[in-house]
């Protein structure tokens, strides 16, 4: 790909196709391209390995070089997620709900940029990309509202035969590693990420390998929203390289294998058994209208026996 963007295709980093084409045609100004980085602990490092990999559009044209995260990057991401866990899990549900809603607000303001990214990444028409972005924003809104309700549907007051107030409450499982869907670069990612963090888990997400760029833009939104650093850590790279490291990692409490192929799952589930990670995958069901399945998959039920007496 030449330095100068071809006139019929918008250059990277220029999200308004019309304007990009005009600028290129007039030769007035060279586009400023973006470097797509990892998102770990609220910062944007390149991979510590210095590696990158080419990302291409449906026609095989180079879109950008994405960072190719290493196992060390993944371990750094887990460490950041672990560090962020007590604060995020300890935040009030009301607060977490507002933080998630704010992500939706910020995405809405950058909807055009997201639509252009998704259109390029997935080879979609502008209309289809726009509706994918709208659905992704709506996912955030849907899950934001669950923050202070999930305990009311998943918890209970239990009538035990004794002088105790016995109650069960859901708590976040901890650090959750998520392999995002490979095809749907943004809607798929949001569909598997929002239900994990709304309940107080912290996340290490491995973005779609062939279509990672919209995820990186999302990380830029997260960085400027109110999501505390480390709550979401986003890695781009080779799924086959990163997923086994996540499955093996002894400080990861749960793993969502949605973005892995059926052929790889048995080995990943076997590795996950080393510290009895909760394992989740539901094929393409993330695309269904969201329900409570994913919310409940990364929750633990704690039961407390509180004495009653005088």
């Amino acid at each position: 790909m030449s330095d100068r963007a071809p006139a019929k295709k918008p250059a990277r980093g220029q999200v308004q196709p019309g304007r990009a084409a005009t600028a290129a045609a007039a030769g007035a100004r060279l586009g400023v391209r973006k470097t797509y980085k990892l998102f770990i602990g609220g910062a944007f490092p390149r991979s510590e390995s210095g590696r990158s990999y080419p990302v291409r559009d449906r026609d095989g044209e180079l879109l950008a070089h994405a960072a190719r995260a290493s196992r060390k990057d993944l371990r750094d991401a887990v460490k950041a997620a672990r560090g962020a866990f007590p604060g995020w899990a300890g935040a009030t549900a009301y607060n977490r709900g507002q933080v998630l809603y704010r992500v939706a607000e910020l995405m809405e303001g950058r909807a055009a940029q997201f639509a252009a990214e998704v259109a390029q990444a997935e080879g979609l028409s502008a209309g289809k990309a726009e509706s994918a972005v709208a659905a992704a924003i709506d996912r955030w809104v849907w899950y934001a509202g669950w923050s202070d309700k999930v305990a009311q549907i998943a918890g209970a007051a239990n009538p035990v035969a004794g002088p105790y107030f016995n109650f069960s409450v859901p708590e976040p499982t901890g650090v959750v590693a998520t392999i995002a869907p490979q095809q749907s670069s943004l809607l798929g990612l949001v569909s598997v990420l929002a239900p994990v963090i709304v309940t107080g888990n912290t996340a290490v997400v491995i973005a779609s390998e062939p279509r990672p760029l919209p995820a990186v833009v999302l990380s830029e939104v997260l960085a400027t929203s109110d999501v505390p650093p480390g709550v979401v850590n986003l890695l781009t790279g080779y799924t086959g390289e990163l997923a086994p490291v996540a499955a093996d990692h002894m400080d990861v409490n749960a793993i969502d294998l949605t973005g892995t192929g059926p052929a790889d799952r048995a080995a990943l589930e076997r590795a996950a058994a080393a510290n009895l990670k909760r394992v989740y995958h539901d094929g393409e069901r993330w695309a269904d209208p969201p329900g409570t399945r994913r919310l409940l998959a990364t929750l633990e039920i704690k039961t407390v026996w509180h004495p009653a007496g005088i």
């Binding site: 239990n158 069960s168 499982t173 409490n253 704690k302 039961t303 407390v304």
Partner: peptide, 28 residues
């Protein structure tokens, strides 16, 4: 009780069980 990472927390009692009371673990 909010901070101890365990599936069952007994306060001023211990080893109480009841069919209505969920039982099970965190982590390993």
């Amino acid at each position: 009780a909010q901070r101890m990472r365990a599936g069952v927390v007994w306060a001023n009692t211990y080893n109480r069980f009841d069919p209505a009371s969920p039982f099970g673990g965190y982590q390993e």
